[in-house]
Simulated scan of single mutants.
Amino acid sequence: MTDPTDRVIEWLVAADPAIRWQVLRDLLDAPADDWRAERASVETQGWGARLLAHQDPDGQWAGGSFMPADFTRQLWDQEGQPWTATAYALTQLREFGLDPHSDRARRTVELVGRHCRWDHDGQPFWTGEVEECINGRTVADGAYFGVDVSPIVTRLVGEQQPDGGWNCERATGSVRSSFDTTINVLEGLLQDENATGGSPESRAARAAGEEYLLQRGLFRRLSTGEPADPAMLDLVYPPRWHYTVLRALDYFRATGAPPDPRLAEAVEQVRSRRRPDRRWAADRRLRGRVWFDLDDGPGEPSPWITLFALRVLRWLAP
C-alpha cells in the first residue's frame, strides 16, 4: 500500500515549478543539480513566468513601490491593501525561487534601483524607507538578489526594541515589539547573513529577536499567556507582512539550528490541522488586489502550506 505521505509528495511534485524545486531540495534530498535545474524553470514557466509577465518596462510592477501608481485611499477602503506593486512582487519572486543569478533577475534589480522610489519620501528602492516591516522585507529581497543592503541592516539593528523585537510603530512612540514586524526583520537578517555572513551586531540582533518569539511560544502574550491574536494560528499563504505561527516555524527551520523545545506548542498547532488526506488547507485569503491566486481558496488543500508544514515536521524529526 502506498504511504499517504508519498501521495502528498507526488501531488506537490506535480504542482508549479516554484513548489516542485523546493520539494526536491527540502523533502526529497535531491542532488543540487536537479533542484537547481528545476528552479531555473521558475523564470519561464508557471507562476514565476506569469508574475514576470506583469512587470512594467521600467522594471516596476503596477507603477509603484509599495502601492500601485493608480491606487487611492477610496480603493483601499473598498478592496483592502493591494499586493501588486514592486515590493510584494519581488518578495513573491524570491519565495518562488527565481534564480538570483539569471539575466532576468539581474536586469530587474538594476531597473528597480534606477526607477523605483518609495511612496514615503521618494527614497531609492534599495536604500529602504522608514518602516521596519518594509525594510526587513527589502533586506530579504535585496540580499537574495545580490544587492548591498548593509545600510538598511545597520539601521534595523539600531531600531531594535528593548524587549528584543521590532515594531514599525516605533517612530510614533511604541516601545514594545510586534510579532508582525519582528518576523519580517528576522527573515531579512537571516537572508543577509546567508548572503554575507552578517556582522556581530546583526547576528546578535537576530538572536535577540528569536528569543522574543521563543519566550512567547511563537503566539502567546508574555504578560498573560493568552494568544496574542487568534489570526496568528490561521494557515495563510502568502502571508505578505502578516505573522503566522507556520511562517515563524519555517523561519526557525531555515536557520539550520536544532529545534528549540519552546516551539513544541506551536508545532502541535500546525500538526493538529493536518487533514485526513495528509494535506493542509488554507483558512483564509488576505483581502486585496493580486495578480493571480496561488491556491484553490480557503478550505481547499494548499500546496504552499502543505510544503511548509511538511518541511517543518521533517526538520523536527529528520
Rank of each mutant, 00 (worst) to 15 (best):
D3V: 00
V13M: 14
V13E: 15
W21Y: 10
Q22R: 15
L24Q: 15
L24H: 08
L27N: 03
L28K: 14
D29T: 10
D29G: 05
R36Q: 14
T44Y: 01
R50S: 14
L51F: 02
L51T: 00
A53G: 15
P57W: 06
D58L: 08
G64C: 09
F66T: 14
M67V: 07
R73G: 12
Q74E: 15
L75P: 03
E79S: 11
E79F: 12
Q81M: 14
P82I: 03
W83T: 05
T84F: 03
A85G: 06
Y88E: 12
L90E: 06
D99R: 08
D103L: 15
L111I: 07
G122M: 10
Q123D: 14
P124S: 08
G128R: 10
E131V: 07
G136A: 02
D141L: 02
A143H: 02
V147T: 08
R155V: 00
L156C: 05
V157Y: 03
G158W: 07
Q161T: 11
E169N: 13
A171V: 06
D180S: 10
T181G: 15
T181S: 14
I183H: 03
G188P: 06
Q191Y: 00
D192A: 15
D192L: 09
S202R: 11
S202P: 01
R206L: 11
Y212I: 10
Q215T: 11
G217W: 00
F219M: 01
L233C: 10
L233K: 13
L235C: 01
Y237N: 04
P238N: 03
R240T: 07
T244Y: 03
V245Y: 01
L249E: 01
Y251I: 05
A254E: 13
G256K: 07
P258Y: 11
P259W: 09
L263A: 03
E265G: 04
V267A: 14
V267R: 12
V267D: 12
R273Y: 05
R273I: 07
D277A: 11
R278M: 13
A281I: 09
L286W: 10
D295P: 08
D295S: 08
P298V: 09
G299F: 03
G299A: 06
W304P: 00
A309C: 03
L310H: 12
R311H: 02
L313R: 12
L313Q: 13
